[in-house]
Design a protein around this nucleic acid. Structure first.
Lengths: 190, 190
DNA sequence: TTTGTAAGTTCAGTATACTGAACGTGGTTT
DNA sequence: AAACCACGTTCAGTATACTGAACTTACAAA
């Protein structure tokens, strides 16, 4: 980060998205209404402890208040342009799916970058037997259920599972989440 | 984060790893030596602006000072145990490679989680023609060179490239980096 | 030993983060 | 209209973050 963080704007953006008043946030966070008002309008340099209390009150990570408002994640290729320039993008119900894998490999392997808005979920029907999925959490936290099993994942975690039963990924938090996803089709089943 | 951050310990750890005195860090950051001393021994609640100046002086991200000392990234599997319990781990020259892919797929596809210590590099000879690599940056920043091309990547970025020429991944920063890496061998070449 | 230097700690003053209470401002009810 | 409420802003006091200077402590040179 090259410039000081815009804490005030971040707090105000999240607070108004939740439709919370200064009084309510003050009660939840233990920070006075007066201080919240001054922080939001950049009249003071709050202490880390104060910003941390506000983060707790808003139920977000401290980093979400300090980071610049989320730059979108970037997708690069050093391959010849024609080969994979066309990146599909599908968006619905708070889910954005960007197809990373070149079309040439579409039959054996697929790779996606999936963005989850707060409280969005991606629910999948069973695939062919032998199909596996590999998840890497790039941002935020998600809950994954595969049949009767459940895993809670946070940034940096990795999870693999067979997906021949119904499986789902939930973002139960109030902040966006990003998941890198590899789907491998079993060679002898396709 | 459920507990207030241990800023003092983080600063002292990084400062002593760099063998900087309080005087030097004070000059570089613009924060008084007295304040640095008190922050490191948790006698005060510093403002965000002060911690941000210190982060600049240490040449690290603000978040590196606020986060709890790095929890290792976790690798989960919801598969039957025997199938993929054995995770290889290779460590040398500041590089730790964890093999994610089950051994059953080792011939067509490999998946790794690679941790780079500060200033570590992973340099690879050319693979068979048609081989591709897919990187997702999980933590930190890295520089990737493939032949004459170069890309600067940060957390959340994705990069794909043919790796039939020499290619390398450098962590030029002072903080660790973690990269998720998929290597796909061209079916008609193996 | 004494002297010197380079490191971190403590001191005393000031700037300001933080608070509870008072104030303004717009919308609704009577 | 007046009275009320809900919301954000401003005020005045106090607690404390922050500073430069003084102080310690430890080790090296004489």
């Amino acid at each position: 980060m090259q410039t000081p963080p815009m804490i005030g704007k971040n707090i105000q953006r999240i607070r108004s998205a939740r439709k919370l008043t200064l009084n309510v946030l003050s009660e939840r966070s233990g920070v006075s209404k007066a201080m919240l008002s001054q922080i939001e309008s950049d009249k003071v340099n709050p202490t880390v402890a104060t910003v941390w209390k506000i983060a707790r009150g808003l139920n977000v990570e401290l980093n979400d208040l300090l980071e610049a408002d989320d730059e979108p994640k970037r997708i690069f290729s050093l391959n010849p342009a024609a080969e994979d320039e066309t990146k599909l993008e599908k968006k619905q119900d708070g889910i954005t799916i960007r197809v990373l894998s070149p079309l040439s490999m579409v039959e054996e392997l697929e790779m996606y970058m999936v963005t989850f808005e707060p409280h969005a979920a991606l629910i999948s029907e069973p695939h062919f037997p032998g199909t596996q999925e590999y998840l890497t959490i790039v941002k935020g936290t998600v809950k994954v259920t595969v049949g009767d099993n459940t895993a809670e994942l946070k940034r940096g975690d990795f999870l693999m599972y067979h997906c021949d039963t119904e499986h789902a990924i939930y973002n139960e938090s109030n902040q966006p989440a990003i998941v890198h996803m590899v789907v491998r089709f079993s060679p002898d089943q396709r």
